[in-house]
Amino acid sequence: MDRNIAGVTIQVNEEGYLTSFQQWNQEVGTALAQEANINMSPRHWEVINYLQTEFKNDVPLSIRKIGKSGVVDIKEFYQLFPIAPLKTASKIAGIPKPASCI
């Protein structure tokens, strides 16, 4: 479905995740973060950039992997994105919901 955010039209799925990463920019990310009551700081962006890089490299993401990434530990990841951090951060990053499991 289409939605307007930060002055542009993006396509999202029924759970609100962008369906095409090409439509993402930092303003879209900031606006999606505000909807999750998160004010983005440089530290937030470092984590988002990491998630996007892993996504582009086809690396499946998990909380465990992020904890071992060297970019952020799990404790801080939760401080930055307090509620369901991996899902929230993935949504802000414009990447698909992590397919953690079956």
């Binding site: 799990i74 939760y78 369901a84 951090p85 899902k87």
Partner: peptide, 20 residues
């Protein structure tokens, strides 16, 4: 749901997630 466990506290008999 969305509970990512950090530790089992044996004294207080609680489980705690990374979000506290």
């Amino acid at each position: 749901s969305d509970f990512a466990i950090e530790q089992v506290d044996n004294d207080r008999k609680i489980i705690i997630d990374y979000g506290g």
